[in-house]
Computed example of a mutant assay.
Amino acid sequence: MLVTQENLAVVAHGKGDLRLDALPEPTPAADEAVLAIAYGGVCGSDLHYWMHGAAGESILRDPLVLGHEIVGTVLLAAADGSGPSVGQRVAVHPATPGDDGETPFPDDRPNLSPAGTYLGSAARIPHTQGAFARRVALPSRMLRVLPEGLDLKLASLAEPAAVAWHGVGQAGDVRGKRVLVIGAGPIGALVVAVLKHHGAGEIIASDLHELPLAVATELGASRVIDARDPDAIAGVHADVVIESSGTVPGLASAIRGAGRGGRVVMLGLQRSGEVPALLSLAITRELTLVGSFRFADEIDAVIEALADRSLVVDAVLTHEFPVEQALDAFAVAGDASRSSKVLLSFDPEDHGSPEERGAS
């Protein structure tokens, strides 16, 4: 395995302290492959670790390599013969389910396992290091070989699209239904795309900013609503609402926008602790409120749909920066009025000027 560039990584050292660190070359276990990372998508949790030193109840206590939305190429195959071979292009399923031996959870829902870990997460000590680095060693079971013809840049959306796919799945059969999406950031935009793929009858998206609403329209939303217009949201009477903002006002809008007997999927992660909600309205309308957390194996269906182009998500990709400009990338990703999904490029041969494609 010949390498010529230092193993540059994006590391959160504390609140407001994001650094580019040179890591040692990865030393893989027998069941691990070494990947050359091509692209990594900046997620909301990455932004929270940078801006707040925590993502929900996951508090940063030690330096953490960020990143879990990643694709790359196998540089060194796993020594035990498992997983893909050298040269194969892969996406990554970043979860490791874990049973704590005490807390019950459904066997068919590994995303709910109580002792599970996720790449780039400070939920446990020691932290689970992420993969925003030029070269990383990862268990071969995490790797999903990409079909021929599926572009690596597009495949970088497989992980967040799987989150959206799982959230839509929590809504049940959406064919022919009127669906309201609260929050049209990267996950909400991907929800719109998945709803289009799944045959929703009418898709309405709300947000505070013009750019995410334009992205949602390009991905299949039939109309959009300014999130500051509660009367317009209340007038939707949606069969299904998918709350993707993870905000208290967003949750209130989701309940207001749901029709009687409707279903509200809480996909956006709310702040920790008690959160106010319009429960009297949910009760009198007999709404069904259901949570959605990460995903199980939906990433496999997403990769197939991306490859055959039945799932169209291109408009979500608005910016690309070389890893050396990670601080700039995070600043842009943290401004919802300027960006949807921001990618980091780890390929030293692809470090031109940042690509910015407006979604207007």
Rank of each mutant, 00 (worst) to 15 (best):
L267S: 02
A258K: 02
I242N: 05
E243A: 01
D308G: 04
L287V: 05
G250H: 09
S280T: 11
V236T: 06
L306H: 08
I283M: 10
V265R: 04
D297T: 09
V236H: 05
L279M: 14
S310D: 01
A277K: 01
T247D: 04
V290W: 10
R256L: 15
G257R: 06
R309A: 10
I255P: 09
S244L: 08
R263S: 14
G259M: 00
R256V: 03
A277S: 14
G268A: 07
R271S: 11
A258T: 03
V302P: 03
E304D: 11
E298C: 09
R285G: 09
S292T: 09
D308F: 12
A296Q: 06
E286C: 02
L269T: 04
D239V: 05
G291C: 10
R256G: 08
S253P: 01
Q270D: 00
I283G: 07
E274P: 15
P249V: 14
V240W: 00
A301N: 10
R294L: 13
D297H: 09
I299P: 01
S310G: 10
D300M: 15
L278E: 11
L267F: 01
D308A: 11
E304R: 13
A282H: 11
T284Y: 06
F295A: 07
G273W: 01
L311E: 07
I242A: 00
S292L: 14
H237Y: 09
I303W: 10
A301S: 15
V275M: 06
L279C: 11
A296V: 15
R256C: 09
R271N: 07
S245K: 10
G261A: 02
A252Y: 03
L279W: 14
T288W: 00
I242G: 01
R256S: 12
L311P: 11
S272V: 00
A301M: 01
A252K: 09
P276F: 05
A277W: 01
V302F: 14
I299R: 07
G250P: 14
A282W: 12
R260P: 12
G268I: 04
V240T: 05
S280V: 13
I283S: 15
G273A: 08
E274Y: 15
V236N: 08
R309I: 00
S253L: 10
V265M: 11
D239Q: 08
R294K: 13
V264Q: 07
A258W: 00
E304H: 14
G261M: 00
F295M: 05
T284V: 13
V265F: 06
R263F: 13
S253A: 15
D297C: 09
S244V: 07
I303D: 07
S244F: 04
R263A: 12
V265C: 05
G291M: 03
G261D: 03
G257N: 04
V236E: 08
A252P: 02
A252L: 06
E243N: 06
A252R: 11
E286M: 04
L269N: 02
E243D: 08
S245C: 05
D300R: 14
R285W: 03
G262P: 08
A277F: 07
G261H: 08
G291V: 10
F293Q: 15
S310I: 11
L311H: 08
G259T: 00
A305W: 04
M266P: 00
G259Q: 02
T247E: 07
S244N: 10
L278R: 15
L279V: 13
G273F: 06
A252D: 05
P249W: 10
I283R: 15
A307F: 10
D239W: 02
F293D: 06
I255H: 12
A258R: 10
